[in-house]
Amino acid sequence: MIVQQLINGITQGSIFALLAISFAVIYGVLRLVNFATGATYMMGAFAGWLTVRYISQNIFLAMLAGLCTGWSIGFLIEKVAIKSLRGVARIASLICTIGFSIFMIEIATVIFGAETKAMPSFFNEKAFTLGGATVVWYQLFLIGTAVTILLLLQILIFKTKAGLAIRTVSLDFKTAGLMGINVDRTISLAFSLGGATAGIAGVLGSVYYNIVNPTMGNLQGLKSFSAAVFGGLTSIPGAILGGYLLAIVENFGVQIVSGGYRDIIGFVILVGFLLFRPRGLLGKKTSL
């Protein structure tokens, strides 16, 4: 049972970690919480759903669709909420991301209807049992994919030129500009990357839970935000750690205390860290 809870936690944590990274990449470069992350997750899920429903029952194609959708949404949010509002109080951009979130949920409701849709399972056969815990192949697939994406992002940010640009903008965008880095383009890239990560997470999550609906990203987005704060909003490794830890803590919280307390656990962590250690477990004061 302990093993099962751990596996449940790691699976759920993979989704949290992807979304937490989406928050962290964007917060890193702009010190802005993108509250449209949950809605982007939802839109990614719908893109995946449309793909398997109308094009091909292929999860990889669905993930590609989620990625592209998320990427475009991130790009668009940056153009509207950030670029056109440059120089206005930060709060305007923040509110604008909330507006985007509402807007996307409404659009999805209008286009697809409020009814929950069924997302088919993939690789749903039992892979193995371990200490009484059942693991299906899809869980391994989900965890593996998430870890791969997280590693790729890690490489992108810490080993490439574009990543160096993102890190410098995150540390000091003015100086970065003076060094010849195109700050606008870098911010735009960070938003697209964050969006793409959320979009893929949407597909992975919807296949795991077998459902797609316009509000599926709300709680997911909120919890991942907690996870990101938990690990350190300004640290990519921190966000990953936060995602996994939050899910594992929640799952064991359910086991030890009760299901009714699971959200409370998440939000106590959020408030606790915001109050006493705002930079989270791994966040440095000013680093991505």
């Binding site: 540390l171 100086t175 970065a176």
Partner: peptide
């Protein structure tokens, strides 16, 4: 006043 990227 030096403006290096302190955490790079």
């Amino acid at each position: 006043n030096i403006r290096l990227f302190p955490y790079l």
